[in-house]
């Protein structure tokens, strides 16, 4: 029996944010006392908001690596509204809001202005919800990618237009109930076969770096921010952020849902450079999609008596396809 102890060996491996048995170099920034708290307390996000958490996780890592030289441009949406009711702000970072659809373009401008002033050491972040990213701001985003502007764009995907009352977006999953995809007809909720996979579309632009991340795996998320920060040009990070209000889930289940999305295969974690996939984060304990869906009222109709089992099977098929396409399971695992 080997007697060597791996450095930083602990009972929770890299699964928890930190661990008192691990050296400070391997734990997440979130787990340290001196994290920036770029998004401070007192914001108006709902109880258990995944978006508020995702934004703090991402921007704190940016703050650490840029030594606080950051400028953030925010699209309209919950993240903007709940942090900045005039005249208060929750941001401990220079922050600018313009419109719902133009954050990537504004960020391009900010970057150009900084360059003109010789302040190229300032990191420029643009961020927004899925509505602003995959739908209304999509033209600006694609342009920013094409021009390869030196901006890191972060999308906080809660799978609908939450700030205006849960309308469907191009990121809303099939079968989900939203205000605009009601429970009617033989296949209630959002349609199959529509919507956009923006991480893949970003890859198709051939930009320097594209990655998907989750608030359920902060070390993975921070590693991806760090990777993005080590590069120049247009970069894209897509973070899955459960929304208790819009999804009809319990506030305490936010992290759990983010985790189940990954473990079911519905939300694949991958990264890519210049259009090529360079890595995936494997599923650790595979679960059927039911485990994820059942915790959310927006999918409640899938489990009602007499529900069309095709719909549930369709969602499972999406997960299975992801698992196959990205190779999310270790060899031999089913």
């Amino acid at each position: 029996m080997s007697t060597e102890l791996k450095p930083d060996f602990c009972q929770t491996g890299n699964l928890t944010a930190g661990n008192r048995l691990q050296s400070i170099d391997v734990v997440s920034v979130q787990s340290t006392e001196d994290r920036a708290n770029a998004l401070t307390s007192g914001h108006r996000a709902c109880q258990g908001c995944g978006e508020a958490l995702g934004a703090r996780m991402a921007i704190d890592k940016v703050m650490e690596l840029s030594k606080n030289k950051v400028h953030v441009v925010n699209a309209t949406g919950c993240l903007e509204v709940f942090t900045t009711p005039f005249p208060e702000t929750s941001w401990n970072v220079p922050w600018l809001h313009s419109l719902f659809g133009n954050a990537p373009a504004v960020a391009t401008g900010v970057q150009a202005a900084l360059k003109a002033k010789g302040m190229e050491d300032v990191t420029v972040i643009a961020q927004g919800g899925d509505g602003s990213t995959v739908d209304i701001g999509f033209g600006c985003l694609s342009g920013m990618f094409e021009r390869n502007d030196d901006v890191l764009y972060i999308c906080y995907d809660n799978e609908a237009y939450m700030n205006t009352g849960v309308q469907r977006s191009g990121a809303t999953p099939p079968t989900a109930r939203t205000a605009t995809t009601p429970l009617s007809g033989p296949h209630p909720g959002n349609n199959f076969g529509q919507g956009k996979n923006v991480p893949k579309i970003a890859m198709a632009h051939g930009i320097a770096y594209v990655a998907t991340a989750t608030i359920a795996n902060v070390r993975d998320l921070e590693a991806k921010v760090a990777k993005a920060m080590s590069m120049k040009g247009a970069r894209y990070l897509h973070i899955h952020v459960p929304c208790p209000l819009g999804w009809g889930s319990l506030p305490k289940d936010t992290i759990k849902l983010a985790r189940l999305a990954v473990e079911s295969g519905l939300y694949p974690l991958f990264e890519g450079e210049h259009g090529e996939i360079t890595g995936v984060t494997k599923i650790r304990k595979k679960v059927p999609v039911d485990e994820y869906l059942k915790l959310q009222r927006r999918f409640v109709h899938l489990f009602k008596k007499g529900a069309d089992t095709e719909d549930l099977a369709g969602v499972q098929a999406i997960a299975d396809a992801h698992i196959k396409y990205y190779g999310l399971l270790d060899d031999g695992e089913k």
């Binding site: 944010a17 008192r20 997440s28 508020a52 902060v218 992290i255």
Partner: peptide, 9 residues
């Protein structure tokens, strides 16, 4: 493990 500290939004 710092989880509580980390997951609080």
């Amino acid at each position: 493990c710092d989880n509580c500290y980390t997951v609080c939004p």
